[in-house]
Amino acid sequence: DGSQKDLVNLDGTIPVNYRGNIYNIPIGIFILDTHPYNPPICYVKPTNTMQIKQGTNVDANGKVDLPYLRDWRYPQSDLLGLIQILVIVFSEEPPVFSRSAS
């Protein structure tokens, strides 16, 4: 309805093991004022040397879509569970890549 709110935003990286290397994937988690009864909004936040890899769970804007978010149920669903699932999902399909200089 066009209303605006200040949301708590968790900003940071999560450790992802991809092909034997650990990468710190930058993400942002926006926690709604109805938390924990509604899911947070999650984004991948590429640095200026990275590009978003649109895929199964991430759209071209970096917004994350997961069954865990769509089927969010308090108290079974929580932020720690979300982050654990992001680590697993992103280790199979990294959502960002670094552009190499070559």
Binding site: G12, T13, P15, Y18, R19, N21, Y23, N24, I25, P26, K45, P46, T47, M50, Q51, P94, V96, F97, S98, R99, S100, S102
Partner: peptide
């Protein structure tokens, strides 16, 4: 306070 931070990193893709 000194909060430990990690540097964002991602797999490299070579651009042809």
């Amino acid at each position: 306070t000194n909060v430990p931070t990690t540097t964002p990193s991602a797999p490299v893709v070579t651009t042809e």
